[in-house]
Design a protein around this nucleic acid. Structure first.
Lengths: 222, 222
DNA sequence: GCTTTGCATTGATTCAGATCAATGATGCGG
DNA sequence: CCGCATCATTGATCTGAATCAATGCAAAGC
């Protein structure tokens, strides 16, 4: 199994024999853009570790309102946050490759490898911290602050997996950003345009270049 | 140690010898209303299991905006969602009693008791699911839906710890509700008044009585 | 008993962001 | 290269909730 993110993900702390064991259980899988990986309410038979591409995780209300609860990137796990059924839907934004594990095998493995469970617990705990940050953003921040925080957070995440750059790839659509930030597509577009007009960012195809990270950091703090 | 919530909390699944071990590590602690339990950024030396009362967990922005990320009730754990420093502040709303554990002892214990770690992991995962529900609420729901969802969720939580009733205790202030729901105190007050005028709820001292749970469930779903 | 203090409620007005409505880009299939 | 589809941008208008501003109301202190 070739895994580009082994050093950054849960796997990083595993011993060689544990890695080999994990390898033997993993099924390489791939998904085309817009392909559904799983849907809210599905029985959770599989756990995924994303190795390449980007995935949107979202919840829907019966009337069609959508909230994106996260974007999964290389190194991220899907399928932890549920016992029997998935609490959200997931689909590929870009072409995605992942290691998939049967839930039964995954469950049996963590029962015998406390070390791995500890890593997964730390990972879940980190996800919870991010979720609380997102509550602060959705409940109390202005549209401009949301956009700026989002861009800085995306830079942080790319950098964690070894793609540090002032040019931030944003493979998701404006609608996806809006549904993640609790805004409309028009507000996202207008706010990005305004940030570009003030030379804070430069809008490029499929992303933005951060031109004034100092100002952005100030906006995110206050 | 007397613990009113032993059957509902993480402790419920422990063997007698494990419980005894936990008992030997626990320090009973109590806090007066408005007393700070810990603050965002503090070094996390202690883990708490709430046994009675209610705690607000919140994050502050430098300019004073506040987001309550959760209310902790009997059976809830505090201090999981961080590695070294607390990511949020906590203070008592009512008089609170808790079992406190030193972080070192807690950490050592879970390293030797995979069974306990598994329970804590399931707990963290449940918290994450609640956090995602809250993102949907904060990002996409109207003020009225937020209030209705909040009341139904509080009923659910009271019922889980054996206090099932259509009269919901709400020990927190209107400001606390507002800061949890991403609203202002005025909007919370007006919305509750409107729900009372339509005979959906009845406002009583320190709580509300649910008069039309069917209508409320419809509001929360759509 | 009266005043203070700290919520909670209610009303009037404002405003950030939503909604409604075109108009541009970009890219793909034939 | 053209026609169509999808997505993004921009402008005009509207509105739900915020803000501003009293007023109510009950417990605490004197």
């Amino acid at each position: 199994m070739s895994c580009k993110v082994r050093l950054a993900s849960v796997c990083a702390s595993l011993a060689p024999d544990e890695l080999a064991l994990l390898d033997s259980l993993a099924h390489p899988t791939s998904f085309a853009p817009k392909e559904t990986i799983f849907s809210q309410g599905d029985t959770a038979q599989t756990v995924y570790n994303i190795t390449d591409g980007m995935v949107r995780l979202y919840k829907l209300l019966p009337d069609g309102r959508r909230q994106i609860v996260g974007f999964a990137m290389p190194g991220d796990f899907l399928g932890l946050a549920m016992r029997d059924a998935f609490g959200f839907s997931a689909d590929a934004i870009t072409p995605v490759t992942a290691c998939s594990f049967s839930r039964a095998a995954y469950s049996a493995l963590i029962d015998t490898k406390p070390h791995l469970l500890r890593r997964l617990h730390d990972y879940a705990t980190h996800e919870l911290t991010l979720a609380q940050e997102q509550m602060m953003l959705l409940g109390r921040r202005t549209a401009e602050e949301r956009i700026v925080c989002f861009l800085l957070a995306m830079r942080e995440r790319w950098s964690k997996i070894g793609r540090d750059s002032v040019t931030i790839e944003l493979p998701m659509s404006r609608q996806d950003m809006a549904d993640f930030l609790g805004l409309t597509i028009e507000t996202v577009s207008r706010t990005l345009t305004r940030l570009a007009k003030t030379k804070t960012i430069l809008i490029v195809p499929d992303g933005v270049r951060l031109m004034d990270t100092q100002r952005m950091a100030n906006m995110a703090a206050a």
